[in-house]
C-alpha cells in the first residue's frame, strides 16, 4: 500500500511538473523489461520479464527521472521453488555540473509480492551520471551510484551497496520519439541482525529495459 502511494505521488509530481514546464523538457516512456535476481547464494536465482514506465523531466540544470518496473520473477534452477512479482520504483534527481556530468541523487525501492518471497529493499542513491552525445539524436549515459541507508523487509542493513547503469537513446533530433535502452546493475551486501548466523547476504539484480519514449 505504501509502495503504491509512493509510485502515485512520484508520478503525480513528475506529470504535474511536466504540465508546467516547456514542451521539449518532458518525455514519457514505456519499455519491456527483463532481469536476473540473485540472493544469498547461487541456489537462489530468478529470472523474469515485465514492463516499465518512465517519466523524464528536465528544466535548465535540473533533471528528474521516475521509473517504475514491474517484473515477474521465476526460479531459474537451484533451490528456488516459488515465483514472485517485483515492483521497483527508481527516482533520479540530477543537477548538471559540467562537461556533461551531473550530480545524481534519489532513491530506489523494490517490493516483492508475496512479501517474503525475496527481500524487499529501499535505499538512497548518491552518485553521478554522464550523458554524452554520440551523433545527431543519439546519446549514451553512464551512471554510478552508492546505495546508502538500505532497508530490507527481512531486517538488517547494508554497509555496501553499489549501482551501475548504462543507457542508450536514439531517435529524432528534436526528441519527439526515441528508442531507449537502459541497463542497471545493483549489488547490495545485506548484514543480517538479530542473532542470525551467516554474516553477509548478498543481493544482486541485473535489469534491462528496452522501449520507446515520446517527448512532449
Amino acid at each position: 500500500m505504501a509502495m503504491r502511494r509512493l509510485v502515485v505521488v512520484s508520478l503525480a509530481l513528475c506529470v504535474g511538473a511536466a504540465a508546467g514546464a516547456g514542451a521539449q523538457h518532458v518525455s514519457l516512456g514505456v519499455q519491456g523489461a527483463f532481469g536476473d535476481y540473485r540472493e544469498v547464494d547461487s541456489s537462489l536465482v530468478y529470472r523474469g520479464a515485465g514492463i516499465a514506465g518512465a517519466v523524464t523531466l528536465f528544466w535548465h540544470k535540473l533533471g528528474v527521472d521516475v521509473e517504475v518496473t514491474r517484473l515477474s520473477y521465476d526460479p531459474h534452477g537451484g533451490g528456488a521453488d516459488s515465483s514472485f512479482k517485483s515492483t521497483q520504483v527508481d527516482m533520479h534527481l540530477r543537477w548538471y555540473i559540467a562537461n556533461q556530468v551531473s550530480f545524481e541523487t534519489g532513491f530506489t525501492k523494490r517490493t516483492m509480492d508475496p512479501e517474503f518471497a525475496a527481500q524487499s529493499m529501499g535505499a538512497v542513491r548518491i552518485g553521478a551520471r554522464g550523458l554524452y552525445s554520440i551523433g545527431t539524436g543519439a546519446s549514451l549515459s553512464l551512471r554510478g551510484n552508492y546505495l546508502a541507508g538500505s532497508k530490507f523487509s527481512g531486517g538488517g542493513s547494508a554497509g555496501f551497496g553499489v549501482e551501475l547503469g548504462l543507457g542508450i537513446s536514439v531517435g529524432r533530433s528534436d526528441g519527439r520519439l526515441r528508442a531507449t535502452g537502459d541497463y542497471g546493475f545493483q549489488r547490495v551486501n545485506r548484514k543480517r541482525t538479530g542473532g542470525v548466523v551467516g554474516g553477509d547476504v548478498p543481493i544482486q539484480q541485473s535489469l534491462a529495459r528496452l522501449g520507446v519514449s515520446v517527448g512532449l
Partner: peptide, 13 residues
C-alpha cells in the same frame, strides 16, 4: 557467492 550471471541484460543494451 551468487554464481556467474549470464549478463544477458548487459549484452542486450
Amino acid at each position: 557467492r551468487l554464481g556467474s550471471a549470464p549478463r544477458r541484460e548487459l549484452a542486450a543494451v
